[in-house]
């Protein structure tokens, strides 16, 4: 009897539709966010993450309504990310029914935002999203930097150091995405995830690269993640969330089944 590991299906939403791109190009339509979220809830998802990838901020209203609609039907924790830049954005999303917000680029430009938000709303609702990419060369010790703009811009910030700093600033959880692995379906970046899991004492969500159920299990068994996030394997019905939970549970992982 212990705290269960979590499976978090992720909805990447562009202009009100769930999409999934391979390395952020070749975007495929995967349906209406409210319907997709309701399906994951029925299948036993432990949480849902909703990432607004709409490029312009004009459609913020659409996102808010969508979050409201999901929160009226889906009674599991809901994290909303994408375009969270200031404390007011956090308030808007929490009032719309989000339980947590994921802060990404804004934390890099203004780390104080994380501190301020955690103090005001509590760490439990502040997730810091870390998009990391390997910068060390073959033969060198592993090193990952934080990247922005879908993995194009290197900030020069070390990912593990950044994770520690964000935990110190009051982040309640870290969502760690490997930009090398995202969309490849070749599994999580285990060394990156493990390095961050070992460096902080807050929950870490592994993200980026899931192509099969063993990948999800490896995120917990090999990297020590507290939760595993995946998008496309669930969107296109390759696997249900229920199948994933059963698979992980069969490997001895504590799950809510």
């Amino acid at each position: 009897m212990a705290l269960a590991k979590r499976i978090i299906p992720c909805l990447d939403v562009d202009n009100g539709r769930v999409v999934k791109g391979v390395n952020f190009v070749d975007i495929r339509d995967a349906g209406d966010p409210v319907e997709v979220a309701a399906r994951y809830n029925r299948e036993g998802a432990d949480e849902i993450t909703f990432l607004d990838i709409t490029a312009s901020s004009d459609d913020r209203e659409t996102t808010v309504h969508m979050v409201e609609a999901i929160a009226s039907e889906v009674f599991i924790p809901l994290t909303v990310g994408g375009g969270i830049r200031k404390v007011e954005d956090i308030r808007t999303m929490l009032n719309a029914g989000a339980d947590k917000v994921a802060i990404n680029t804004a934390a890099i430009h203004n780390p104080e935002l994380v501190k301020e938000a955690a103090e005001y709303y509590g760490s439990q609702c502040i997730v810091v999203a870390i998009d990391a990419k390997k910068v060390s060369k073959e033969g060198e010790p592993d090193k990952w930097d934080i990247f922005t703009h879908g993995g194009r811009n290197d900030t020069g910030i070390d990912a593990v150091e950044w994770a520690k700093k964000m935990a110190d600033y009051g982040a309640g959880e870290l969502l760690v995405t490997s930009m090398d692995k995202d969309g490849t379906k070749s599994g999580f970046n285990i060394p990156l995830t493990k390095a961050i899991v070992d460096a902080v004492n807050i929950p870490v969500i592994a993200s980026g690269g899931v192509g099969n159920l063993q990948h999800l299990a490896d995120g917990v068994l090999k990297a020590g993640a507290d939760a595993v996030l995946a998008a496309s394997i669930f969107h296109f019905n390759e696997y249900t969330v229920g199948e994933a939970k059963e698979y992980m549970s069969d490997q001895g992982i504590e799950m809510r089944v």
């Binding site: 212990a2 705290l3 979590r6 439990q124 004492n201 507290d226 504590e254």
Partner: peptide
């Protein structure tokens, strides 16, 4: 059982 206990406890427990 050797499971890390991170605080806050966050997630599904019995």
């Amino acid at each position: 059982n050797g499971n890390r206990l991170k605080i806050p406890q966050m997630g599904w427990n019995q």
